[in-house]
Simulated assay, not measured.
Amino acid sequence: MSIFDQILGAAHNHPTVKNMADKLGIDQATAERAIAALTEGHQASGDTVEVAQQKSGLDANILTQVMEHVGGEGSLGAFMQILDQDHDGNPLNDIAGMAGNLFGKK
């Protein structure tokens, strides 16, 4: 499972993401895809929005609005912290754990 898919799964039905979607006037599924793509794009080399657009197929304007809503590119890490359930500074292990639990692995 890719990082995009793991983040997308963790963001699914998250109240913070739903609130953001409502404020921006987009559906929650689009907001979830935008967050996952922007978070992955933030970690990749290159322009965050361009990488996110290539990954998600979402319009660059929507991605830019989402990024600005969360406080800019530097704030994308905040969404990773929201997903960091054990607060160890590494949300990817929590996301991987969530994905493992979905498939009955521990």
Rank of each mutant, 00 (worst) to 15 (best):
N13I: 04
A37E: 02
N90F: 08
G71S: 00
K55H: 10
D59R: 01
G25R: 10
P91C: 07
H87R: 10
D59A: 08
I82R: 07
G74S: 07
D22Y: 04
A29S: 14
G100R: 07
A60V: 06
L38I: 02
K106P: 11
D47P: 00
A11T: 05
N13C: 12
F103D: 14
F79D: 02
I82F: 13
F4Y: 15
N61A: 14
G71T: 00
N13K: 13
H12G: 13
E73P: 09
T48W: 03
D27Y: 05
G46Y: 01
F4C: 08
R33P: 11
S2W: 05
L58I: 09
I7F: 02
G46K: 00
I95Q: 11
E40Y: 00
I35H: 09
D59G: 12
Q53H: 11
Q54N: 08
L58Y: 11
Q43A: 14
P15H: 04
K23V: 09
A31Y: 04
A78Y: 15
N90M: 05
Q6N: 12
G71M: 00
A99C: 03
D5H: 08
I3C: 12
Q43P: 09
A31M: 05
A21W: 02
L76T: 03
G89H: 04
N19A: 14
K18N: 14
G89I: 01
V49S: 01
L8D: 14
A11S: 10
I26L: 03
K105P: 12
S2M: 07
Q81T: 15
Q54I: 00
T64G: 06
N19L: 10
P15Q: 04
G97T: 04
N90K: 05
H14F: 11
T64W: 00
I7K: 01
Q54E: 06
G104F: 06
I7V: 13
T16D: 15
T30P: 08
S75D: 08
G72Y: 04
D59Q: 10
N61I: 06
A29F: 13
Q85Y: 10
T16E: 15
A37Y: 01
G41C: 01
A34Q: 00
G46V: 01
D47W: 00
A96V: 11
I62W: 06
T39D: 12
N90Q: 09
I95V: 11
S45K: 10
A78K: 14
T64Y: 02
E32F: 08
M20L: 11
E40V: 03
A99V: 07
F79H: 02
A52I: 03
G89C: 05
N19Q: 13
A37F: 03
G74F: 05
G100P: 01
T39R: 06
K18Q: 15
Q85E: 15
G100L: 12
S2N: 14
G72M: 04
